[in-house]
Amino acid sequence: MNAIEIRGLQKSYRVYQKKEGLWASLTGLFQREYNEVEAVRGIDLDVAQGEFVAFLGPNGAGKTTTLKLLSGVISPSGGEAHVLGHVPWKRENEYRRRFALVMGQKNQLWWDLPAQESFQLHQKIYRIDPEQFRRTRDELVDLLEVRHLLGQPVRELSLGERMKMELTAALLHSPEVLFLDEPTIGLDVVAQHNVQKFLKHYQAERKITILLTSHYMKDVVALCRRVVIIAQGEIKYDGSLAGIVDRFSGHKVLTLQFADGRMPGDLARYGDVLEIVEPKARLRVARSSIADVLSSVLANNTIEDVSVEDPPLEEVIAKMFAHTANEKKSEAVLPVETS
């Protein structure tokens, strides 16, 4: 059964085009130029109950906008979406008590109060049974190892500790769908790892549906089997992580270790030379010719060690983002309206 169903979802904003300088600002008071920014341009997506899906994309690709649409914070310009059978932007209480949104860059806990007071408030707002509330809270703070910080004002917590409290607050009402918008942003490696570990465990245990956006490939590798890539408001890829490399990279990385200083001078004929650190060399070779290259190298040289790998995921994705960004530039943004 699908927890999330999206059909042709669109969202465009009208943005005031501010010109440089005082005179332009003054004339801008009377005559404004607006640009229509299409943040989401017709997305179709199905997410099954219990799936953990990553949204990847460059900044401004429409990931956060999509999550906000699905949480009902904003309304779409077109298209449909159903989450757990509800239309999110109707903002029905029945829907709102079944999901949660966590944003790494914003906090909802009372800044000057200990987190436990904000948790109390959530108990009242979601009307969680006191006994169940206590159990859930204790379980969450123990898993996240922040029980000893419950009584400390939120403003005195570190970023990582605060994020763990935010996660606890969001999960107190046991949501069935969770939207995570860059939950590990700005966290150090240890805190990042803790949050990943927690999310993995929690999702496996509760079988809830999670949509995650993140710029840290480590999050994605650790957590999600399915990846959706969004760029310019459109879905560019939907599939497995490994599939990204197959689809967007036609190359393999070949690492050769030559026997005692017998590295040939004309390595470039086998492929693009990425790096030479004697006695090792790394080459980028087109996937289709990898077998030929390998046999030719082995026939003509004394090789001590060899490995053939996929290029790093980050690199493939970065290249793909750069590619779509170029496409975007060539497509001029038209001023649509003056008033």
């Binding site: 949480s71 009902g72 914070v73 209480n93 709102r96 008590r97 944003m103 914003k106 707002i125 979601y126």
Partner: peptide, 12 residues
């Protein structure tokens, strides 16, 4: 600051 987002999420 966008803090209204959180108010809109609550079932109240």
């Amino acid at each position: 600051t966008g803090g209204l987002d959180f108010a809109l999420l609550k079932p109240i």
